[in-house]
Design a protein around this nucleic acid. Sequence first.
DNA 1: GTATATGCAAAGGGTTTGCACGGTT
DNA 2: AACCGTGCAAACCCTTTGCATATAC
Lengths: 144, 144
Amino acid sequence: MAKDQWEQRLRAGGYRITPQRQLVLEAVEGLRHGTPEEILAEVQRTASGVNLSTVYRNLEVLEEVGMVTHAHIGHGAPTYHAVDDHVHIHLVCDGCGAVQSIDAEIAEAFLGEVKVATGFVTDISHVALHGRCAACDVNIPVAP
Amino acid sequence: MAKDQWEQRLRAGGYRITPQRQLVLEAVEGLRHGTPEEILAEVQRTASGVNLSTVYRNLEVLEEVGMVTHAHIGHGAPTYHAVDDHVHIHLVCDGCGAVQSIDAEIAEAFLGEVKVATGFVTDISHVALHGRCAACDVNIPVAP
DNA sequence: GTATATGCAAAGGGTTTGCACGGTT
DNA sequence: AACCGTGCAAACCCTTTGCATATAC
């Protein structure tokens, strides 16, 4: 995303341009997948004084103006993505913990049915799907 | 679930039958949907001295022996169900917060495709799907 | 009698908030 | 100059854990 583009977006939302804001955005774009802690670490490579709460506040702002989204993958911290990434579904294996991504397109028909049945418009990428990966599914399904 | 059935299941897993255990199970069955806190409240109607950590420990045990499951609905505490309930998908509206349930059967074809594409076997009921309900979808999609 | 369960209190991870100071506009 | 954004510390919610005691077997 070009510099003047995101500056515009922020200003349009009534927000100011600060170094921390810029660094958080760059970190999200650079990492592709990042938890708030990971984003903080990335930001601190440039500006070591930045605080975790600033990261949280800026992720919230960047999400509000539509430059960032988050998805819930495991039971832990959410991961943030830049919006121009491909929309994908995360599959989390409850056996081995592995996470794989598939193109969200595969869910289109299903989401259409859900909409017809209930009127609900689903953001399938917002939460990971849980289950068992091919390798773990063949084993005896004992809870980990 | 009949009394001797669940006693068997617990004993088979090497667990003992305690009043707290029984009350937690009954609370889950009675409430149909309940967070650990809600289950505690229900249990305490009969036995006021029971502790939250006991509820957590027993939910874990009951889940291990297959009498209870949990699903992640909002960003807060998970909700527990008895296993003999119908398997359903929770739809959470990010606009108004409403939660609706639909039969998990609607996802069968989709989950089949996911399995073919990746080998991944999905437990679609384990996490709620997020999006916008019919009422909120027609309004300007401003984040809450 | 012995191992498992319990209650309590403390600690833990992740996130939010109140406050005074500093920076952007 | 006004207001938004920041750092810091404390508070928050949900959950787990260590320990001594009680209880099921």
